[in-house]
Design a protein around this nucleic acid. Structure first.
Length: 305
DNA sequence: TTCCAGGGTAACG
DNA sequence: CGTTACCATGGA
């Protein structure tokens, strides 16, 4: 049903959302850190600067009602291909193409997931569309608390990337792999990366910059286990990081970072355990999640907010 | 002060 | 193959 009382700006895009979608739940997850530097949530909408067709495009995404998201372009008139790119970007970002109905059916018979899917109905896995960003974010987050990881990311972004200013606010892009590939480890250690993380980050930047590592390359065989093996061959990428990237970037439904401390804490909290569950116990719990491990993990993470 | 945090590598047996 | 020391800093 079209609401004629709402005047749609001429360059906006309406994006249909599935029934199992709730914008507020997604925003809630996106707002988990006040130190986030790659987007801004304001008045129920979210603004983010993205690179589309070689241009910096400032997007604003809002719930338009009637099962639609609205994308507005805040910094200039978009060409046809930029509009198409933006639509694809937002669709991936909010994972709009996944049908969650089977996941919810499965969760109905899972005492661990059921309260979560009820409470957070419509939450989607929030994508980190850019492979380099997803890899860097995962490496930065290894073995440190999340608050410090956000601090590292902010320093990294504000030191080695570029921004656009709109309405007095800064909107940052993520650093390019080309820029990072040329840095010595000491440059990142100055930002309080450990020596290892500095090496891992620069190593990954070199692989992406020279074309050896890409989303398309990883997914070329249409086999997520192939992508996983490729990722695991890279220095600094172990099982946790590989599965984190499969989950947030490559959209592998069975991605499962089983060693994740946040996952352990969420299960402990949800089941009211006196200690964290063992890996074997988690494996047991996850048997019925087959092919939905990624969403199960994401809903458990969201319980920690 | 101690312990843990969205782990991974290298060097052992 | 499995185990262990080490990384290095912030927050509770």
């Amino acid at each position: 049903m079209l609401d004629v009382t709402k005047q749609l700006p001429p360059d906006s895009i309406l994006l249909a959302t599935p029934r199992e979608f709730n914008f507020q739940e997604c925003l809630r997850y996106l707002q988990r850190s006040p130190n986030e530097c790659l987007y801004r949530v304001m008045n129920g909408s979210i603004q983010k600067l993205v690179r589309v067709d070689g241009e910096n495009v400032l997007l604003c995404v809002t719930d338009n009602g009637d099962s639609n998201l609205r994308i507005d372009f805040l910094n200039g008139l978009p060409s046809k291909s930029i509009r198409a790119g933006a639509e694809k970007y937002v669709s991936d970002w909010f994972d709009l193409s996944t049908d969650l109905a089977p996941f919810y059916s499965m969760a109905e018979n899972d005492p661990l997931l059921y309260p979560l899917v009820q409470k957070h109905f419509g939450l989607r896995i929030m994508g980190v569309n850019d492979l380099f960003e997803a890899l860097c974010w995962a490496i930065m987050g290894q073995q440190i608390n999340l608050a410090f990881a956000y601090t590292l990311k902010r320093r990294f972004v504000e030191t080695y990337s570029e921004k656009e200013i709109f309405d007095g606010e800064d909107y940052w892009l993520f650093p390019t792999p080309e820029r990072v590939a040329g840095l010595p480890p000491e440059a990142l250690m100055k930002l309080q990366f450990t020596g290892k993380k500095a090496e891992y980050t620069i190593g990954v930047a070199k692989l992406v910059a020279n074309g050896e590592l890409s989303k398309e390359g990883l997914l070329q065989k249409g086999d997520y286990r192939f992508a996983e093996k490729e990722l695991l061959n890279i220095r600094g990428i172990g099982p946790w990081t590989a599965h984190y990237v499969l989950l947030r970037c490559l959209k592998d439904p069975s991605a499962f970072p089983i060693g994740d401390v946040g996952l352990h804490n969420a299960i402990k909290q949800q089941l009211n355990l006196s200690r964290k569950p063992s890996i074997a116990e988690i494996r047991q719990l996850s048997l019925k999640w087959a092919n939905w491990e990624a969403y199960a993990t994401f809903y458990l993470w969201s319980a920690l907010l």
